[in-house]
Design a protein around this nucleic acid. Sequence first.
DNA 1: TGCCCGCCCGTTTTT
DNA 2: CGGGCGGGCA
Length: 852
Amino acid sequence: MSEAEHRVPIDTGPQPAAEGIAARALRLRGATYLAGLNPDQRCAVETLDGPVLVLAGAGTGKTRVLTTRIAHILNLGRARPAEILAVTFTNKAAREMKDRVGQMIGQVVEGMPWLDTFHAIGVKILRRHAELVGLRSDFTILDTDDQIRLIKQLLEFEKLDEQRWPARVFAALLEGWKNRGLAPDQVPAIEAVSFANGKGKALYQAYQQRLKTLNAADFGDLLLECIRLFRQHPDILRQYQERFKFILVDEYQDTNTAQYLWLKLLAQPRSSPDAPGAATAGDEGAERGRSPDVGPRLHTNICCVGDDDQSIYGWRGADVDNILRFEHDFPGARIIRLETNYRSTGHIVAAAAHLIAHNRGRLGKTLRAEGGPGEKVQVTACWDSEDEARAIGEEIEAMQRAARENGADHPLDEIAILVRASFQMREFEDRFIQIGLPFRVIGGPRFYERAEIRDALAYLRVIAQPADDLAFERILNVPKRGLGDAALQMLNEVARRKRIPLLEAARLLGASGEMKPKPRAALRALVDCFDRWRGLGAKIPHAKLAEIVLDESGYTEMWQRDRSADAAGRLENLKELIRSMEEFENLTGFLEHIALVTDADGGEGGEAVNIMTLHAAKGLEFDTVFLPGWEDGLFPHQRSLDEEGHAGLEEERRLAHVGLTRARKRARIYFATNRRIHGLWTSTIPSRFLDELPPDNVEVTEARTGGFGMAAYGASRFDEMTAFGSNYGTPGWRRAQGRRGAGADEASAAEARVEAAERGRRPASRLVSRPGQAGDAGRGGHPLRARRAPPLIEGALIAKSTGTVSQFAVGERVFHQKFGNGNVIAVDGNKLTVAFDKAGEKRVVDRFLERV
DNA sequence: TGCCCGCCCGTTTTT
DNA sequence: CGGGCGGGCA
């Protein structure tokens, strides 16, 4: 399609035909699409001409404005769908926008070819003009994994000590340069010298060289090469400038410098001969600093939507300055603020707004809540992270009970636990497994990044693209076929000498007598396989081909024979991969898709509490949000403070703001006073962000467990606490303080001490694997309120209270997502004790198990 | 070639 | 404290 579209006359404007029935139908819908907007939103939608910056606070209808704006442009006939460039960061956001625009404008208009992620659009442009940047149009897109391996090769070739100069360090450096739009000769001298005694720049050059040989581009190149293309070929740039009558950018606060430069080039339409001179190398500073003098500017219909208070990706190259500098970059820009929050209740909005007001570098917005005040933001102190997980688990169960009593229910999907760092998740997973609370972890290792998937893909890549050396190298000896380092070295040597791909080198070596018979035979077999598979590819569906490849290569068998815990899961993943291939027309299409789309997307049904990082939560919303771990050093994170100083603190604060504003009805903050850091128990200080919350909108409570166990505190620790407590005089807080006094609860104090001591001894083994003792649950009181009862007893009580009988029997073979395969060795209600092959003995709830 | 031991490190992550 | 990786040894 690229060729055909290429020739479509570019500047035909609205066509008369569009004014017919379809347009009238659209008009009718138009009456509704504008009606529901508030005045600010409406202004953001209707201000079509000139640069516009929409500062959209959390929950103020950002996506709605973007999509309505597109609908509006189309409805007025100001542009056709193919003349609107709309960029997002993630595939998810792009998909959502496509869906919503589709809904608004109905089937009357064809889809929008230029609504996509920065990278997807970059690829689209590059494939059309690949020759001009030294690539072929079927170039491969490398991911981080490939990159690292490529860099390792380069370092080896340069005889650099991998210990002193690790590949990933260089990869990070490289990424940073590319994020900033720097070509090898533009890298600042100091930075170029900083790696491998001044070899940084040369390595960058060699790396780019190698990419061209491999006919490959990395993620950074998808934008950088576009920029280079635009600068070196003003005629091509002009084509695109004229085509895109309107440009829309989502999440502008997250753009990095390369994306900024890319946008800026496209958003300077019909600029007079700005051309090669001004546009070639070395003027990064100039372009960014002053506003480039580019002659008569006719229209820059660019609309950027973002929120400087939600910029949380500085560490990966996003430059908040881009949004702060907007007016300067696009003179005459309109700035429209969306400040009415439709998502959260009053106290939550007030708390978030007050917190973020402590930041200095911001454009300034005042969020207002639409709805009533709702519940105050709760702040709860816990003894340690285990206590924190227990408290939150019980809170969730209590909420469900309460809802049930009211005949309502609080769906688990509407609950999220947002952590700063992923290691915090484990505690919740463990606890929820124990009490049988369904949860799902969002984030984690991504589907397409798993080793088995990448191995399978490598086979397919070699079939589709015989010159893909990285892919070939990856599977050369996977599964093991006796082609180790020695063989690879020979291959590399031949390939380099003859300037041919590894696969071709393999063919030569397989035919010649240079190699020892064994590896030679293996090599020949492999090459034959690839020849056969490629031939087959033309005849059978690609999903079927993949299946055959995995079988014949011995790859499936390799995992079938593997006895480790996750082998079953890996085989499952491979099946899933083949299933997902069926949705694509051909192998190339599929490979392109997976190169750019990495979100496995958690749409998996089923009622479950969501556990994820704060970063992963951006853009999402939930009725109830739990925010654990608000301790200085963890949140704000120490490393952020150390490395980025005040800027780092402000970004952490924005993260806190993002966290709070995810909540519709309930936001609950927790902190622990003790946490294990790098294996050591450390006492912690409550997050400074707590003191930045407005007291009137906050309620300080004690944990439901009552497990805070103040009596177990040393005096000094409590003194640290008072810095926090002094701000509050709520009953809950006073109660907690009161408990500090002697004898308030001798028994529990003793219990807490014992337990603390016990934890000190074996903090890691978490009371899970002592199934024998589950029986004596003879204590009174509600199981959930059981004060400091040993968790096992608590677990048993819950199991009994659910009244279910397990469908599993002792001796059965079962599979668990996290622990792998194992044998049931005890059954107790719906709780089973399973001896896992790898993970050892665990107590798990039966619903997490499958029969094998 | 494969396994094991020891060392090092330990925040966030999309494309 | 525990996981991952790399080097060294069998």
